[in-house]
């Protein structure tokens, strides 16, 4: 695979001196889904806005399909589709006309079969003659996606596509994103929802305070950074961890549950020894459960580490 989007040392400063992007460098491969995670004000939307031409970069370079977003802005932008965070639509316009408008705006000739295909794929065909103000919030989000896809882009930016939508619609959106990936569209999405990144992304990037802290293959990230926990349930409640088990840094979650954290990458996890020592300490085992850290744990950990490092 080759990089369809290349961001090099991208910086954005505002007049007041606020630095929204502090030298972001990122390559995105064609056909992948990358999720950018970050708290509010991390710089996610600024990054997207800069690549899409809505915000002017202070320095650095961005190429899309090999085209520079400043020097070859026409070629670069024609490859990009953008679904914004806010629902921004002309309320009195009809669904089909607003999608046709978007296609025309990107210089593509009117092709009713393409527009029909997009509307059908997004379950909007039966609403094509409705005014946008008549649609529900979820349907409006679908229209925004239809507008972004109208000119058949190769790269699609989804800025918090499921913010404020119900669980069912969120799952629908994930199916739509999966469909688009099957069609070969490269997708960059920003999200607050870790489960969203976990469910649909191939790679995950963590951004905070305008800096890209990490970009990693999702599965590898989970494997590399994910710590596993072993919950050992015992039959008799205890008040404190026995002294003989002090070397394991056990956490007494409740009077009958001891939690042991271990690294999956380690050669020896120490589980066999622990279970033996627990029995030797006179505690009777009732059950054992293992849990893997979620992406959310990893994300919170990374952001906290950065905040602590700066403090």
């Amino acid at each position: 695979m080759s990089a369809i989007l290349q961001i090099k040392d991208l910086r954005k400063s505002y007049a007041g001196g606020f630095e929204a992007l502090k030298g972001v460098t990122l390559d995105i491969e064609e056909g992948e889904i990358i999720a950018l995670l970050g708290p509010n004000g991390a710089g996610k939307t600024t990054l997207i806005s800069t690549v899409c031409g809505i915000t002017t970069p202070t320095s650095g370079s961005v190429t899309v399909g090999g085209y520079d977003i400043i020097d070859d802005f026409r070629d670069a932008r024609s490859l990009i589709g953008l679904v914004p965070q806010e629902i921004a639509l002309e309320p009195f316009e009809r669904v089909i006309n607003t999608v046709r408008f978007s296609r025309g705006l990107f210089g593509k000739s009117r092709k009713d079969d393409v527009v029909e295909g997009i509307l059908k794929k997004l379950s909007l065909w039966d609403k094509k003659d409705n005014q946008l103000k008549e649609l529900s919030g979820g349907m409006k989000r679908r229209v925004l996606i239809a507008k972004a896809l109208a000119h058949e882009p190769r790269v699609l930016f989804l800025d918090e596509p499921t913010a404020g939508v119900d669980v069912e619609l969120r799952k629908d959106m994930w199916d739509i994103v999966a469909d688009m990936k099957r069609d070969g569209v490269t997708i960059i999405l920003t999200t607050h929802y870790i489960e969203e990144a976990e469910a649909i992304a191939d790679r995950v990037g963590v951004i905070n305070n305008g800096e890209l802290l990490l970009v990693e293959d999702k599965a590898r990230l989970m494997q590399q950074l994910g710590k596993k926990q072993l919950d050992v349930q015992i039959s008799t409640p205890i008040d404190a961890v026995p002294d003989s088990l002090a070397g394991y840094a056990l956490d007494l979650r409740d009077p009958t549950t001891l939690t042991y954290s271990y690294d999956v990458r380690a050669e020896r996890t120490g589980i066999t020894q622990l279970l033996g020592d627990i029995a030797e300490a006179g505690l009777q085992l009732k059950d054992v459960v293992t849990r893997q850290s979620s992406l959310e744990d990893i994300f919170v950990g990374l952001v906290q580490e950065e905040e602590e490092a700066k403090a």
């Binding site: 899409c52 031409g53 809505i54 802005f73 026409r74 070629d75 670069a76 932008r77 024609s78 990009i80 953008l82 914004p84 806010e86 921004a88 639509l89 002309e90 309320p91 978007s102 705006l105 990107f106 210089g107 507008k147």
Partner: peptide, 17 residues
Amino acid sequence: YFPKFIGTIFEVLSAPL
């Protein structure tokens, strides 16, 4: 002004125009 007000101006700004 209206696209600026309701936010649809993003589409014009991000188009190859």
